[in-house]
């Protein structure tokens, strides 16, 4: 149990997927203008990563390993992720149209969010079992959620600041991302 909690903290905060591993930067910068949409995106990513790491682990264990075709993992995982994103899209369109509208093009972009594939592949290379895979996936996605909502909060405040002209827009956002990354470096070595 203790090992699992440590694993979760490790992948959520210490090895934060965005700020330490630099995966999933596209939605991190693209959808972090408003806290509400950022949280929505984070929620969608949590769902997709958790389920996809579960399904990917299942497929790896019960289909790819017995048939000795582990080399197919990348292509099969991409298939699974794409299908899950499609599913989430349908689900959101039906049940939360306003969130669906505000996520816009970034929702299909989860398909190409490298964090999702990254987690599935990390699970395999680190030889996590089914439970560990799901926890790792969920924790990593929580780390993404954390990073993107903090970013959105900061960006909402930045709107009111008097930023020198050359730094306005994307430039200041990238600087903020760097500072956040440096802050999260403080966690390294904790576990």
């Amino acid at each position: 149990m203790k090992a699992l909690i440590l694993l979760a903290i490790g992948s959520a905060i210490v090895n934060n997927v965005v700020l330490s591993q630099f995966l999933g930067i596209c939605p991190f910068l693209g959808v972090s203008k408003k806290t509400e949409t950022a949280a929505g995106m984070g929620g969608a990513v949590i769902f997709v990563i958790t389920v996809s790491s579960f399904v990917a682990a299942l497929i790896y264990k019960f289909i790819l390993t017995p048939t000795n075709t582990q080399y197919l993992k990348t292509i099969v995982f991409i298939l699974v992720i794409a299908a899950l994103v499609q599913f989430v899209e349908m689900f959101l369109k039906k049940s939360m149209p306003s969130l669906y509208q505000s996520l816009g093009v970034y929702l299909p972009l989860i398909t190409t969010n490298c964090a999702v594939l990254g987690v599935a592949l990390t699970n395999v290379t680190k030889e996590y079992n089914l439970l560990e895979s799901v926890i790792n996936g969920f924790a990593t996605a929580c780390g993404f959620f954390l990073a993107i909502t903090i970013m959105a909060g900061i960006r909402e405040k930045i709107e009111y600041n008097d930023i020198p002209k050359p730094f306005q827009g994307t430039a200041i956002v990238l600087i903020v991302a760097c500072l956040m990354s440096i802050a999260f470096m403080g966690f390294s070595g904790m576990i």
Partner: peptide, 18 residues
């Protein structure tokens, strides 16, 4: 053939699901 069958099979299952 095995590789094609596995990827194809997974694809078909996903297709039905979607």
């Amino acid at each position: 053939i095995i590789a094609a069958a596995i990827v194809g099979g997974v694809g078909i299952i996903i297709g039905f699901f979607l």
